[in-house]
Amino acid sequence: MLITVSKNSNEGYSSLQEALDSIPPEHISEVTIRIRPGVYEEKITVRQEAPPILLLGEDPDSTLISWSDNAHTLGPDGEPLGTFRSGTLNVFAENFTAENVTIRNASGPGTGQAVAAFVDAGQAVFRRVRLLGDQDTLYTGKGRQYYDNCYIEGDVDYIFGAATALFERCHLHNKRSRGYITAASTPEAAKFGYVFLDCRITGGAGVSEVYLGRPWRDYAHVAFIRTSMDASVTGEGWHNWGQPGREETSRYEEFASSGPGAHPEARVSWSRQLTPEEAAGYRVLTVLDGWHPEGY
């Protein structure tokens, strides 16, 4: 099933949410929603009962989904939305893929938690997607998630959550000094939390003292494998979030980091440098428990 969303009134739906809502409840096979270039200012929800969905833009530079809710925005009930209802794109479906689009929370710096993509899916894939925001840009709620050639920016805890998520060839961009890239809440029983393979980290002009992560929950797991890091990354690398006990339970790992921000000798003592043999075990199939996200 193919649905088109376009700013051209003569071509398909003008609203992405309307396109999603048009899918018949009894439809169970894959649905491709082709998004023509344009700025789509709307808050999107992909419901749990949705069939496998592919949101397919033409390219991230020309295809933008944007909204500006934050944790303090008042909802229909008159109460603040909170972090978990602030998302621009909210995914609850079991199988979801997005390609060649930009997803932005335009709330702006200093407005608090403001999620661009809230991903609470069984299996989710993002390819060539830009995720733009400040604090809490990407929430990875559950399931297995794969990010390939994506650009993700923010300042505080801008990748956070409990899912097992693999980031391959992604670009992470730090927008503010003394920030944190990850805030994992990996469950105790999970073998993997966040794994970054062959990624790069950059910072804006003058940005410094950014931590690779801090543990949102006790058993946070984050591994950076062959990641290029610029000088925005602090030598310590990792922060305990003011919870010394989490130094005993968190698993923070690196292998073959490079660039001015790679300082294995300066990292906190409770992080680890993996051996080549250990790092070889961080492969897509292994991290994602046998699932390789090649299309559907």
Score class of each variant (00 low, 15 high):
residue 180 Y to Q: 13
residue 198 D to K: 01
residue 96 F to C: 05
residue 132 L to M: 14
residue 88 T to Q: 12
residue 41 E to F: 06
residue 247 E to Q: 12
residue 136 D to L: 07
residue 205 A to H: 01
residue 8 N to I: 09
residue 280 A to D: 06
residue 18 E to G: 05
residue 16 L to A: 07
residue 94 E to C: 04
residue 171 H to R: 12
residue 79 E to T: 09
residue 152 I to Q: 06
residue 7 K to R: 05
residue 83 T to M: 05
residue 104 R to D: 01
residue 90 N to G: 11
residue 91 V to I: 10
residue 82 G to F: 01
residue 200 R to I: 01
residue 135 Q to K: 13
residue 187 P to N: 08
residue 73 T to E: 04
residue 2 L to F: 00
residue 240 N to A: 08
residue 216 W to S: 15
residue 211 Y to F: 03
residue 85 R to A: 15
residue 225 I to M: 00
residue 81 L to P: 03
residue 286 T to C: 01
residue 277 E to C: 08
residue 110 G to T: 08
residue 239 H to D: 14
residue 136 D to Q: 04
residue 170 C to K: 08
residue 121 A to Q: 05
residue 154 G to D: 03
residue 218 D to E: 06
residue 92 F to A: 13
residue 47 R to K: 14
residue 224 F to M: 02
residue 22 S to P: 06
residue 263 H to T: 07
residue 36 R to A: 14
residue 279 A to R: 01
residue 276 P to G: 12
residue 175 K to P: 03
residue 224 F to I: 06
residue 78 G to I: 02
residue 181 I to R: 00
residue 132 L to E: 12
residue 16 L to E: 08
residue 101 V to W: 05
residue 103 I to R: 00
residue 284 V to H: 05
residue 267 R to W: 01
residue 201 I to L: 08
residue 21 D to V: 10
residue 130 R to A: 13
residue 4 T to K: 11
residue 133 G to I: 14
residue 42 E to T: 14
residue 111 T to Q: 03
residue 164 T to F: 03
residue 259 G to P: 02
residue 113 Q to Y: 10
residue 240 N to S: 04
residue 230 D to K: 10
residue 86 S to C: 12
residue 3 I to E: 02
residue 214 R to M: 03
residue 5 V to F: 01
residue 38 G to A: 14
residue 266 A to T: 09
residue 78 G to T: 06
residue 103 I to W: 02
residue 175 K to C: 05
residue 263 H to I: 05
residue 16 L to W: 02
residue 277 E to W: 00
residue 186 T to M: 05
residue 180 Y to H: 14
residue 64 L to H: 04
residue 97 T to C: 02
residue 98 A to M: 13
residue 113 Q to G: 09
residue 184 A to L: 07
residue 44 I to P: 09
residue 38 G to Y: 11
residue 192 F to P: 13
residue 271 S to T: 15
residue 198 D to Y: 01
